[in-house]
């Protein structure tokens, strides 16, 4: 069952990577990176389920917040403004 979950999530990651590599415009890549960040949080939840250790969810929380900041920086870049506005 768990193997099935990890395979499905890996497939989602590959879809995102396809869009990161082949996306025709910069915003397409930004969206794919954002989605990849959220999928990795799901992965860390699955890892916590497999191992029973709680630090995988610490990784998940940090990953969610950091990927949000990264996405905001990329979005500000797309808007054509500086990072401190």
């Amino acid at each position: 069952m768990i193997t099935f979950f990890t395979i499905m999530l890996s497939a989602t990651c590959f879809f995102c990577l396809f869009r990161v590599i082949g996306g025709p415009t910069p915003p397409d890549r930004t969206v794919a990176i954002d989605v990849l960040g959220i999928v990795v949080v799901g992965f860390s939840a699955i890892m916590a389920l497999i191992t029973g250790h709680d630090y995988f969810l610490n990784i998940g929380i940090s990953w969610a917040l950091l990927s949000f900041i990264g996405t905001m920086a990329l979005a500000k870049y797309l808007e054509g403004r500086g990072f401190d506005e």
Binding site: T25, P26, P27, T30, V31, D34, I38, F68, T71, M72, L74, A75, K76, Y77, L78, E79, G80
Partner: peptide, 15 residues
């Protein structure tokens, strides 16, 4: 997640 989506959509419209 919705805030990031909002930022990306506004950014790409301005782009």
């Amino acid at each position: 997640s919705p805030t990031a989506a909002h930022a990306i959509s506004k950014g790409s419209h301005d782009f």
